[in-house]
Every structure is written in C-alpha cells, then in structure tokens.
Amino acid sequence: MLYIGNHTTSSKGYEKMAQQMIANGGNTFAFFTRNPRGGNAKAIDETDVKKFLSLAGDNGFGKIVAHAPYTMNCCAAKENLREFARNTMADDLKRMEYTPGNYYNFHPGSHVGQGAETGIQKIAEILNEVLTEEQTTTVLLETMAGKGSEVGRDFQELRRILDLVEKDHKMGICLDTCHVWDGGYDIVNDLDGVLTEFDQVIGLERLKAVHLNDSMNGLGSHKDRHAKIGEGQIGLEALVRVIRHPALKEIPFILETPNDDEGWTREIALLREEYEK
C-alpha cells in the first residue's frame, strides 16, 4: 500500500482536510498544528475530529503527520524563545491525542552561534520536559539541509539528540528527500547506501515518514529549496525509487512541493502510476 498525500492547512478543519486529500487522490496528509509563522492554534472541534476519524477509516488512510510551527526553535539562545517552544510542543502533544497514534514532526532548530552540541543538548532538554509515557503520538525529528546554523544536518546529529532523550521510544525521524540531498546524501545514485548509513547510525525502525520533495539545487548545496516532482535536481526516477524501496513500505509520503491542489493531484496520480509499474 502506498500512503501518499500533501501538506495542507489545518484552518480547514480535520474533516475538510481529509475530504480535500481524497479529492487529490491521497490517503494521508500533513498539516500545521497552528499558524506556521506564529503561535495561535484553533480550538479543537470534537465533532469535526469524530467525522475525520470516520472518514479516514472508511477511506483507508495511513498515519497523518502534524508539523510544528517554523517559529518553534527548541535550541534558541534566548530563553523566552525556548519557553515558547516548550509550551507550544507541550500544547500540541495534548491536542494530538484527539487523533491518537499519529506523528508530530518538527525542525530540530537553529543553534544561532551557540554550537551544534549546545543546540543538541537544549533540544533534548525540552523533549525530556514535554514527552509523557501516556502519549500515543510519536515525535519526529526532521532531517535538515544544513543551511545556516541548523541542527540535524546529518544523521549523526539526530542520533546524538535521540541518545539524550529519556523516553526515546516516543521518538522517530522524518526524512525529507530535498533536505538530505541538499545536505550531501546522494539518494539519486546511492539510495541503498544512504539508507544503510541511516540504519547504522539511527536505525531504520525509527524512520516513520518521508517528505517527498524534489530539489532546486545540487547535491550538498545546503540550500533547502523544494521543487515540483521531476522538475528538480533529484528527478522523478530517483523519487520513484524512494517510494518503491522495500525498507520504506507502509510509511506516509508527504508532498511539500510548491503546488496547489490541482498540482498535487497530478503529482499523486503520477507517483501512484509509477509506483504500480
């Protein structure tokens, strides 16, 4: 089963997000938990959630992937920004329990000159404060392209965060194809090698979701500029190998390509067709 969909907006509500994804040909989706550039979150409508859960069950949806706001920087130098990150993640994880058993993805953050090791420690500190044994949500660290002072630019940095998290069984990884390509991992010519390295450093059992994006830039560019499927430097053939790879069966593939619903519908149909060949 290929679980594929696109990143949509939570302002529509859960039921409408699912309806839009069905119209797009998808059976999973990603959404921001709140304004991606701010801190506001809409109140949860329990009736809306119930309708979504019914619709998702009837249409064979895979796990959905919530995305924390871009403004959430767990390793910020300023304590007020870390407090915002701490409160946001804690609140988001409570809200996620209305749709239990899904994924909550976040960018590890930027150390803003403090150094990667300090950033890693600060990220783990917040995770240790907010993760609970009762939660059913798996929290995903996203692989990053390595621009600026981003933490998570390679598998080793993500591993060091995981090593410091006490409830690490509540943790996983979301691999972004554009980010790892821009970060220097050659998924075009050596996908098996990249996944073998991931397994050796982190463990493939931790890989819970994939952001499926082409890249406007070349291997190792550290730019993070997404391109439409087949229109970038990674290319359609390489991305089809990703969705077909036996190590990645049954996980959600999320399109974050620069598109609208019409464009995502075309991409989902194309990828389904190529997957079935």
Rank of each mutant, 00 (worst) to 15 (best):
55 L>G: 12
53 L>V: 03
71 T>H: 02
70 Y>F: 07
77 A>M: 13
51 K>C: 11
52 F>M: 12
61 F>I: 11
51 K>D: 14
58 D>K: 15
49 V>Q: 04
84 F>E: 10
62 G>M: 13
68 A>S: 11
58 D>P: 06
69 P>I: 09
106 F>A: 01
102 N>L: 12
107 H>R: 11
51 K>R: 07
94 K>E: 08
96 M>L: 12
64 I>F: 08
65 V>A: 04
91 D>H: 07
66 A>K: 07
67 H>D: 10
69 P>Y: 06
71 T>E: 10
106 F>Y: 09
90 A>C: 01
103 Y>P: 08
73 N>S: 13
64 I>Y: 08
79 E>Q: 15
80 N>S: 14
91 D>C: 00
97 E>K: 03
102 N>E: 04
86 R>T: 05
83 E>Y: 05
65 V>H: 03
68 A>L: 07
93 L>G: 04
74 C>A: 14
94 K>G: 02
66 A>V: 05
51 K>N: 13
84 F>R: 03
77 A>E: 09
66 A>W: 13
97 E>R: 04
63 K>A: 10
96 M>Y: 11
61 F>Y: 07
71 T>W: 00
82 R>M: 14
89 M>G: 02
49 V>T: 05
51 K>S: 14
71 T>I: 15
76 A>I: 09
61 F>D: 06
54 S>H: 12
68 A>Q: 04
87 N>G: 05
107 H>N: 08
95 R>M: 02
96 M>A: 08
60 G>D: 14
83 E>H: 09
68 A>W: 00
54 S>D: 11
85 A>N: 06
54 S>G: 06
85 A>P: 02
62 G>W: 05
100 P>K: 08
58 D>M: 13
79 E>L: 15
88 T>A: 09
60 G>K: 14
91 D>N: 10
98 Y>G: 01
103 Y>N: 07
89 M>D: 00
96 M>S: 06
100 P>N: 09
86 R>E: 04
97 E>L: 02
59 N>I: 00
72 M>K: 02
101 G>S: 03
92 D>P: 06
102 N>T: 10
55 L>D: 13
50 K>R: 08
88 T>L: 02
71 T>Y: 02
55 L>S: 12
97 E>D: 05
68 A>K: 00
